[in-house]
Design a protein around this nucleic acid. Structure first.
Lengths: 242, 242
DNA sequence: GTATTTCTGTGATTGCAATCAAATTTTTAT
DNA sequence: ATAAAAATTTGATTGCAATCACAGAAATAC
């Protein structure tokens, strides 16, 4: 196991705990105790963490990299539901209900995860009931985001949805550069299409339009430079007809 | 206040508690104690329980009737996110985070509710930590349903979505009759359109098609008789081209 | 660095659902 | 019961995005 220069081997364990709000209310001592029951795993790009219909019994926290969670629709398309990255967690559903996984989770790039087994997580919950409250808050947050997604899918304008997606990515995967915000895209064009539920060609065309309007600058397939955030916000939230 | 023949006035209070799984793990004594801190309210059809942007500080349980929760989209349409009916709860988000209500809730018919204030609910949570787990389970359930909704919105076929909605309603609002399942619709055609994010006319046309195919029989504007459930299931889940 | 493969962009066409415009049914009020 | 209002259905037209087809670009392998 690698060692950390600052705090020794333990630090690796604590890393993921410090990234999730779930544990934010706990003391350093408690965290140290928890660290001992965490399992670590690595995955390569394209590797499947678990599949729809599986019965995974662990809470998984993304410590590095990003993953997509998707279902296969009745017409064979891949519908992406979430892109989870550093600090996000998933798999918690299978720790409470006895449900089977609702989606497949696949690494979008090399990924490191921390996970709790069902048993150790329940012990944890028993020892620190305040964690349950934190989880509720986190789930509410997630529901909020899904409500917005549902709302924007209900909106017929595809322009809105593309713009909203770019803003989302800008917040999560963007870094400030002199000209604007450089977004390192977690998804390919096809991935974005599968996230939005539109055709791949439509994403290309819409991004082309935004580029012509000087709102974004495409930078290869892996990143996009957001030049005019306010224009994008206007196109994401306001009327679609100008 | 009305009296109950079986158990006296108390029973009215307990009613809503028995309808929500949140309290299913508590003893009768605990329930009796909780009953004393519940507030009751009545609303008429069309009345607003609270509005998007409000800061309601109560957990509300629907005891009778049904409500819709909606947002107004950027293009002015009403996007319905949920139809809550007997046993469902909402408003919990404002008890944990300090967030403002994400949607407007309006009565679809005469409605009776039970509610806890923020303070009394937190006392409750403190006294019975297992309630937090129940809430998590309930939220996971809700997330599951939203994931399905998102997935089916990603599916381009509108037929699928209409069929899925009818099956949903059949389960929640249907009663068995000799010819099939009689669905008492909580939403008007326009409401269904706003739920699905399509035009009102499209809902009419699609229902018309289903009626021609002998799958349903429209019965005024308030109810639909589902004749052939398996055909509807096929059209909801399978390929859209037959 | 070249070849191969995978991914992306662009044009042409088609199809489905939105919109506009009445007509008709259903509900509500008196 | 009748009138008025509201909701729904139906038809005609339009527009946008899916699909098909292929050219070009980028990433990967060798």
């Amino acid at each position: 196991m690698e060692k950390c220069d600052v705090c020794g081997a333990q630090c690796l364990h604590k890393l993921c705990m410090h990234k999730v709000p779930i544990f934010s209310s706990l003391s350093q001592d408690d965290l140290t105790h928890i660290a001992s029951i965490i399992r670590h795993k690595k995955y390569q790009k394209g590797e499947t963490l678990f599949s729809e219909g599986n019965r995974p019994d662990a809470l998984v926290i993304v410590n590095e990299g990003s993953v997509k969670a998707f279902k296969i629709t009745s017409d064979g398309r891949e519908q992406i539901l979430y892109v989870f990255s550093e600090g996000d967690f998933f798999g918690e559903r299978n720790l409470f209900g006895r449900q089977v996984s609702a989606y497949t989770v696949e690494a979008l790039e090399p990924v490191k995860t921390c996970s709790f087994t069902k048993e150790s997580f329940h012990e944890l919950l028993h020892a620190y009931p305040e964690i349950a409250i934190k989880i509720i808050e986190e789930l509410e947050e997630r529901i909020s985001r899904m409500e917005s997604a549902l709302q924007s899918m209900g909106v017929r304008s595809i322009d809105n949805r593309i713009s909203a997606l770019l803003l989302d990515f800008a917040e999560k995967y963007g870094t400030s550069v002199p000209d604007g915000t450089l977004i390192h895209l977690p998804l390919s064009r096809e991935g974005m299409a599968n996230y939005l539920g539109v055709a791949r060609e439509t994403v290309s065309r819409k991004l082309g339009l935004l580029e012509n309007e000087g709102i974004i600058r495409s930078n290869g397939n892996k990143s996009i430079l957001l030049l005019d955030r306010s224009m994008l916000e206007a196109s994401a939230g306001k009327s679609a007809d100008f």
